[in-house]
């Protein structure tokens, strides 16, 4: 029996696997004297098939991390690198990042009057895939995903996010993730503002994508509630612009019972120590 060594090699190192690497990321908002550092050295690696939960209190910089990776112009990268399969993500324009395989499900999706959902989805799919999807299969795919997310078909003819309820907006975000099939999906507080039914529907959508095994998920959340539906492989505690503790799913349970108080206190002490050091240094 002959063995195809080429196939053997590629099976051992799956070529479809992607890796997002964030190294020493520093991000600030504002300019000049008003500039404020939000991220203070983030290190994180997300691979295909992994689900990472980033948990932290309000104002810790979780959303800044999400928007910085997606390329929102409001944020300035002051140090560090972000790469996707070795490619420099920070050098790419917003649309290039999406075409490279990044996806951000936003906490507050934006209304776009006069642009229908169906037009928007097809234009996005065309841009991501590099060619217009075949009309017949596309319509079928969209319909199937909408059904799975329990969305009314009439939804497709509405304008993007215009007059959507909170739950409809989040389902629409997950619908896009399902159709655009990113390599790395960042879900920014997708669970916020959802009732139990909507949370379940949205979580099932994410889990279907995870089950396909080719996506790395970065799940940003304030609450542990969504982690009952989407089981993370890794949990990172995010406080004051950096990851302060990492662990497995058990860390989420600990946060659920103890909260963030201990981390916030540590962080405050560290920050004031740093400030003191800085003042000494500049004196």
């Amino acid at each position: 029996m002959s063995v195809d060594t080429q196939a053997g090699v590629s099976a051992a190192t799956p070529s479809t696997g992607s890796v997002l690497e964030i190294r020493n990321l520093h991000v600030s908002v504002g300019e000049g004297d008003d500039a404020k550092e939000i991220l203070r050295g983030v290190d994180l690696t997300v691979r295909s098939g992994e689900t990472h939960a980033i948990m932290g209190p309000n104002g810790s910089g979780k959303s800044t991390l999400a928007y910085s990776i997606a390329g929102h112009p409001k944020y300035t990268i002051t140090a560090g690198t972000v790469t996707l399969d070795g490619e420099d993500v920070l050098a790419m324009k917003v649309d290039e990042r999406a075409r490279a395989g990044m996806f951000l499900a936003m906490q507050y999706p934006v209304e776009v009057p006069g642009v229908s959902v169906s037009n928007f989805l097809r234009t996005a799919a065309t841009a991501i895939k590099g060619e217009a999807p075949k009309l017949r299969t596309w319509v079928k795919d969209v319909k199937a995903e909408m059904t799975a997310l329990e969305m009314d078909p009439a939804f497709a003819e509405r304008n993007v996010n215009e007059g959507f309820s909170g739950g409809e907006k989040k389902r629409h975000e997950i619908l896009q993730m399902r159709l655009l099939k990113p390599k790395i999906a960042i879900l920014d507080e997708t669970d916020s503002g959802l009732d139990v039914d909507a949370l379940r529907i949205v979580s099932e959508g994410v889990n279907r994508t995870r089950a396909e095994g080719e996506v790395g998920v970065l799940l940003i959340t304030h609450y542990t509630r969504i982690l009952r539906y989407i089981k993370p492989d890794f949990v990172h505690v995010f406080v004051a612009g950096r990851i302060v503790e990492e662990g497995g799913p058990e860390l989420a349970d600990k946060l659920e019972s103890d909260g963030y108080a201990a981390y916030v206190k540590d962080s405050n002490e560290q920050a004031s120590a740093e400030r003191a050091a800085l003042e000494v240094g500049s004196a």
């Binding site: 996005a124 991501i128 655009l180």
Partner: peptide, 10 residues
């Protein structure tokens, strides 16, 4: 930003 974040050029 929203449209571009879905791969659509500016």
């Amino acid at each position: 930003f929203y449209l571009c974040s879905r791969g659509i050029d500016a």
